[in-house]
Structure formats: structure tokens, C-alpha cells
Amino acid sequence: MNNKNLNQINISIIVFIISSTLGLLFSTAINASEDKHGDEPAHEIELVLMADSLAQKMGVKTKSVQPGSLEVSARLYGSIVTDPASLSHVRARFDGIVTKVNANLGKKVEKGETLAVVESNQSLKAYSVTAPFSGVVIARHANEGELSNGQVLFSVANYNEVWAELKVFPKQLPSISEQQPVVLGVQGAAEESTIEHLLPSPNEMPYILAYAKIGNTSGLWPVGAAIKGDVIINRSDVSMMIPKTSIQAFEGNSVVFVKNGNEYRPEPVTLGRQDSKNVEVLSGLRIGDVIVSENSYLFKADLEKSEAGHEH
């Protein structure tokens, strides 16, 4: 065989080898692609898209997952009463005739301000009946020309501080003591205070009374109003804590919606201890995750609506 024929055979062999190799590589790439597509889930990834502007209009609120303290509390009920040190029933020092009245019901007065003028029966000299402290006149029993005769002429009260008077029944007594923190609540207001006194109830009622002071310069704590108090009886530190309002039941799991940009994704969580407002998270979230803390039901409803549409 001459060299020319030998070269042609060699070239043919090389072309065959290259063609076979390229064909094998092309076939492998297609199979890998098919395998990759075959591994993808058959359903769509579950998430809800919502712009921040719309979320704000819908009342959606978010917060970052952080450590915290669970507070186990006992609920007490009672009413708001006047601070005894801030209520005075004003009388004249000496019996006599009321010659002038300067204060009427509802008037705000300053400490030392003249409420009325009385002429003494003994000396026939006039003297002033004054306000013992700054406050408001809540009762008036003095009129010009009347005799004072030791009666209460005015009642003056200062409501800048009031007391919560809470009933503690026997089954609650082991958990309640002085100096415990208590979160007080009345419609439209809440404040943390401390139980300062535990006293027997009058008339031998089957409970004792717990007293906690409340600042009332805002006027949101009216005397006589019904009040509730959550006495903190135990605190437990937890590594992750979220509001109960953030949790929804979805597809048999407790889920929390995690926000990432405009995406809200349901994440199954394992829950632990809880108090009246918050719950411990054992797994499913990380510190710093931004979750929907209020109105998370909107996202659950959107997912359920989407699934119902796919079924049809």
C-alpha cells in the first residue's frame, strides 16, 4: 500500500473518532439536561408577591426575629380609685358664717388658694379657707350666709396619680406578692406598674386587695373605671421569640411568613413555650429573619385561593 492510501485511511480514522466523541458528548449534555429537568419539583414554589406600598395599605406589619423573655402572668380585675393622699375634705378651722365663696364645683385650684372666707363666731374676724394642695374641686357644700359648723365645705382631689385596686382570690394568693410587676390596662391605655400593697378587703369579702400606683396626667385613667392587671409571676429567656399573631396554620403545619423584598414565603416552624402574647421558636427561623407580625392571614388566604384555582 502506498503512502497516499495510508494517509487517507489515517485521516478517515481520525475523522471517525472525532465525530464519535462529539456525538457522545452531545448525547451526554442532553441527558444531563433531561435529568436536571426531571429533578425539578412538579409544583410551583409557594410564595406571595406584594409590593411594600400595598402591604402598608393592607395593614401588614413586620418585625425581626430576636431573642426575648416570655412572661407568665396572672390576670386580676378591679377598679381605679383615688389616691388617699390626693383627696381632702376641707373644713373651716373655727365655726362661723361663710361670707364669701370663691370656688365652685369643677374649678381647678392651686395650693393655698382661697376657697371661701369665714367670719369667726368668737373673734368676729374673717379668715380664709384655703386649698391644701393643687387639684380640682369635686364637691361644694358652702354658700354665703351659711354656718360652717364643722361641716365639709369643699372636697378637693388631685388625679395626677391614681391607684389600681385589684381583687386577689384565694387560689391566686400563692402567686401574688408585693413588689411584683403588673401590666395595667383600661380601654385605650396600658401601663406597667408595681404592686405596692396587699391589704384585707373590707366587710370580710373573700379576697384581698392589691394596690398599684398609676400616673394619670393624661387623664386616661378615670376614677371608678373597671381595670385589669396582668401580674408577672415568671419570666423565661428564650433564644428566639415571635408574636402569636404571626403564626398561621397551613397545609398541616404552623407557618410564619418570611419577607424577602416583595416576596413572602411560608416557613414551617417548631414552637415551644408561650405566654399570652409571644411564643418560643425552636426551629424553622433564624435570628434577623423579617417576618409578618400582623395580618399574616392575608398571605395564607392568598395561597389557599391560588391552590383552589390550580385544582380547577
Rank of each mutant, 00 (worst) to 15 (best):
K36I: 13
A131S: 11
A51H: 07
E34W: 04
I97V: 04
S20K: 12
A139E: 06
A142D: 01
L22V: 09
I97R: 09
V48Y: 06
V109T: 05
A131L: 02
V117T: 12
G78A: 02
Q66C: 06
K107M: 12
A116C: 07
Q66E: 10
R140W: 04
V101L: 07
D39K: 11
E110C: 07
Q56V: 08
V60S: 00
A42D: 14
S148H: 02
E119H: 01
H141E: 09
K100V: 03
D39M: 11
S69C: 09
D52T: 01
L115H: 00
G23A: 04
Q122E: 15
G78I: 05
S33W: 15
T99M: 08
H141L: 09
T28S: 14
H89S: 11
A55Q: 01
A55C: 01
S88P: 04
E146Q: 12
T130E: 07
A55F: 03
E110A: 14
G23Y: 00
V101Q: 00
Q56P: 02
T130L: 06
Q122C: 08
V118Y: 00
R91F: 07
Y127N: 08
S79K: 15
N121W: 08
T28V: 12
A131G: 00
V117P: 03
P41A: 03
Y127I: 05
V129P: 05
T62M: 00
G68D: 07
Q56T: 12
S53Q: 10
K125G: 14
A42L: 14
S19P: 06
D52K: 09
D39Q: 13
A131Y: 10
M50L: 05
K57D: 03
V72S: 15
K36A: 15
L47R: 12
P41I: 00
F26D: 11
D83A: 00
F16R: 03
E110P: 09
F94Q: 10
A103S: 00
E119L: 02
V137Y: 02
E44N: 14
I17C: 13
S86A: 14
V81Y: 06
G68V: 08
S20R: 10
P41R: 02
V152C: 07
K100D: 03
I45N: 15
V98K: 08
S19R: 06
S53W: 10
P84T: 07
E44K: 13
V48A: 01
S33V: 13
A142C: 05
S27N: 14
Y77F: 13
K36L: 12
L24D: 12
M58P: 01
G145V: 07
K125Y: 09
L147Q: 14
V60A: 06
P67N: 09
S123M: 06
T62A: 01
P67F: 00
S20E: 10
E46M: 08
S79N: 15
S128D: 12
V137C: 03
E34N: 13
P41M: 01
N104T: 11
E119M: 08
K125L: 13
S27A: 14
L70H: 04
I97K: 11
A32T: 10
H141P: 02
D35R: 10
